[in-house]
């Protein structure tokens, strides 16, 4: 693992369970799920569909409260929606009435201390957003509206919006799931670049094993419902990883190993 990573644990989930109450029936979505993530680490969670991956994301961010167990971020227990966490979903949820630049700047209008400073230092913040857009190759489209962008561009803007306020935690829920294979692989590179520059802690929820291995330091495999972590795999491939890396035998081995686990889980 790269030496920059601080060993302090940043996110912990301790024997978390969640029961969905829907009318008469109650479903156990997640049971006894424990994991811990270090500061600045990029982890991926994979698993069969319907295993509660997205539920996990909502639990970590405090959007839903777990029925049992506890979640901490930076040592503090999570009780309500955690503040200042960046999120990106499969559907890019950009606001159609705002230009790309204004969309990216949305979190700055909400998160303190930027919210207070934004009006006075608009130029500085705008430059910062433009810089970020340049990193992902979108600076020429800053004035365009989301519906004038391609799916891949929208997703780049979406990722920019998720990290503009420099959150300590970034949650990615299949952010590249709706893109074509070429665009998706291109964005893996963009994502890795952003992470290597900024070293935020990131949790990537995905069903694409190659994506997980490409981006993550560690990959967790979830069981089918009720979801829990059944396997954990360190990805000991040096960064920056490139698309050529994905054709190396070691990369393939890890992907195969994970795939076998998922198949096992499916048929258990």
């Amino acid at each position: 693992m790269s030496p920059e990573i601080n060993d302090a644990t940043f996110v912990t989930l301790d024997k978390v369970s969640l029961v969905y109450q829907q009318a008469e029936t109650s479903t156990l979505a997640v049971e006894d799920l424990s994991l811990s993530i270090k500061k600045g680490e990029f982890v991926a969670v994979v698993g069969p569909s319907g295993c509660g991956k997205s539920t996990l994301m909502k639990i970590v961010t405090g959007l839903i409260n777990c029925s049992a167990g506890g979640v901490t971020i930076g040592g503090k227990p999570v009780k309500g929606p955690t503040q200042g966490v960046g999120m990106a979903f499969q559907n890019s949820t950009l606001l159609p009435w705002r230009s790309t630049l204004d969309n990216v700047m949305l979190p700055l209008e909400i998160v303190e201390p930027h919210k207070r400073q934004l009006r006075r230092e608009r130029d500085r913040y705008e430059a910062r957003a433009m810089n970020l857009l340049r990193t992902v190759g979108l600076h020429e489209f800053a004035d365009k509206f989301p519906w004038q962008l391609s799916g891949g561009m929208q997703q780049r803007a979406n990722v920019c919006r998720a990290i503009i306020h420099e959150p300590s935690l970034l949650m990615l829920d299949e952010p590249f799931g709706a893109l074509d294979a070429f665009t998706r692989e291109e964005l893996w590179g963009v994502m890795q670049k952003l992470w290597m520059e900024r070293r935020f802690t990131a949790i990537l929820i995905t069903h694409d094993l190659r994506e997980a291995v490409f981006l993550a330091d560690r990959v967790f495999v979830m069981s089918k419902r009720p979801g829990r972590i059944v396997y954990e795999r360190e990805v000991d491939i040096p960064r920056p990883r490139t698309l050529d890396t994905t054709f190396e035998p070691h990369f393939g081995e890890i992907v195969h190993e994970l795939r076998e686990r998922i198949v096992e889980v499916k048929h258990s």
Partner: peptide, 14 residues
């Protein structure tokens, strides 16, 4: 309002 969008904003502390 799309629930995802609401989630994004709630997690920013809106």
């Amino acid at each position: 309002i799309e629930p995802e969008l609401r989630d994004v904003l709630r997690c920013l502390g809106a």
